[in-house]
């Protein structure tokens, strides 16, 4: 077991370093951070405009500080009642409204873009190495299980780095554009959000890495991962739409295979809701990875 863990860690470290050196990963990483920065900036502009207009409607005190109006709206009882009526879930709304708006915007961005980011980067790695034959050099020195796990963990590390860098970029923009005293609160909010997005992204890392075990063509692996990404969204949508009594309860099982099921629970502060969601996402990521490993285990290299 110790040897398995050591070898997995070695593959993880090597995979992380190699992925960072890859041009494709670098380009996607830069694009992701740029998207985070630009979206945060645009969102602040939008928030300030909406803030000014809503401030008039809700008769809030105006402030000279950028972002102060939106924060005031966020904390106003009237706005809170409005959102609770819309969402229909008091506890979730409380948790969401306890988060600074700019952090929520970064969270939405991270939850939307990170699956795509991880699918684009992680999907090629295993297929590429098997196709080029470079996997053979490692696989005569370690088990296929530790190699697969290391590949997955390395990619998970890369996704974490991307999300963190995106969060730092968004935080710096928010710090420049919004009230400076909100900096520490925003930073902790960004870190927590990055952690949530990373947990969510893990499933897609598992999916992309797992599917990458199925083929020797990096292009096909990416196509398969993109289809997989789309399929999970469609499956989640269908299972939410068609879930019902008798046989329709089967859609509940289908929903359990999608990360979307846990997306909102990740925003809750109550450990009884957050921890099962996080555990489910981690389990799901390993399930998808193991689907790929099952193919690699029997495969001739």
């Amino acid at each position: 077991m110790m040897r398995f863990c050591r070898q997995t860690l070695l593959v993880t470290a090597n995979e992380f370093a190699d992925a960072l050196r890859s041009r494709r990963a670098l380009v996607v990483l830069v694009l992701y951070v740029a998207a985070a920065v630009l979206t945060t900036n645009s969102s602040i502009n939008l928030l300030q405009r909406i803030g000014a207009e809503l401030g008039d409607v809700l008769q809030l005190e105006s402030s000279g500080r950028a972002g102060a109006v939106s924060s005031a709206i966020w904390n106003s009882p009237r706005f809170r009642r409005l959102v609770i009526r819309t969402a229909g879930d008091d506890t979730l709304v409380d948790d969401l409204l306890g988060t600074p708006p700019i952090v929520l915007i970064y969270g939405a961005l991270a939850f939307f873009y990170t699956p795509l980011l991880t699918v684009l980067i992680a999907s090629t790695r295993v297929a590429e190495e098997v196709a080029a034959g470079s996997a053979r050099y490692a696989l005569i020195r370690t088990s296929r299980a530790s190699w697969s796990c290391g590949k997955f963990l390395g990619q998970a590390g890369l996704a974490g780095l991307a999300i963190l860098l995106g969060g730092i970029g968004a935080w710096i923009v928010a710090l420049i554009r919004m009230a400076a005293e909100e900096g520490p609160g925003l930073a902790s909010g960004m870190i927590l959000t990055a952690g949530r997005a990373w947990l969510y992204a893990l499933v897609y890392v598992g999916l992309a890495t797992g599917l990458s075990h199925w083929t020797c063509s990096p292009g096909r692996a990416t196509a398969m991962a993109l289809v997989g990404l789309l399929a999970l969204s469609v499956l989640s949508w269908m299972s939410e739409l068609w879930y019902g009594r008798s046989w329709r309860e089967l859609w509940h099982l289908a929903h359990m295979l999608t990360p979307q099921r846990d997306r909102l629970d990740l925003w809750r502060w109550a450990p009884s809701r957050f921890l099962p969601a996080a555990a489910h996402l981690v389990a799901l990521s390993w399930l998808y990875l193991m689907g790929g490993y099952a193919v690699l285990r029997r495969r001739d290299l």
Partner: peptide
């Protein structure tokens, strides 16, 4: 041959197998 138990005891130069392109030889 068991790649875990016998790691390093048997090595192979495989045919038509490229090294990882972005790696450094020493690393």
């Amino acid at each position: 041959f068991d790649p875990v138990a016998d790691a390093g005891r048997l090595t192979l130069l495989p045919q038509d197998s490229e090294l990882p392109r972005d790696s450094r030889p020493r690393d």
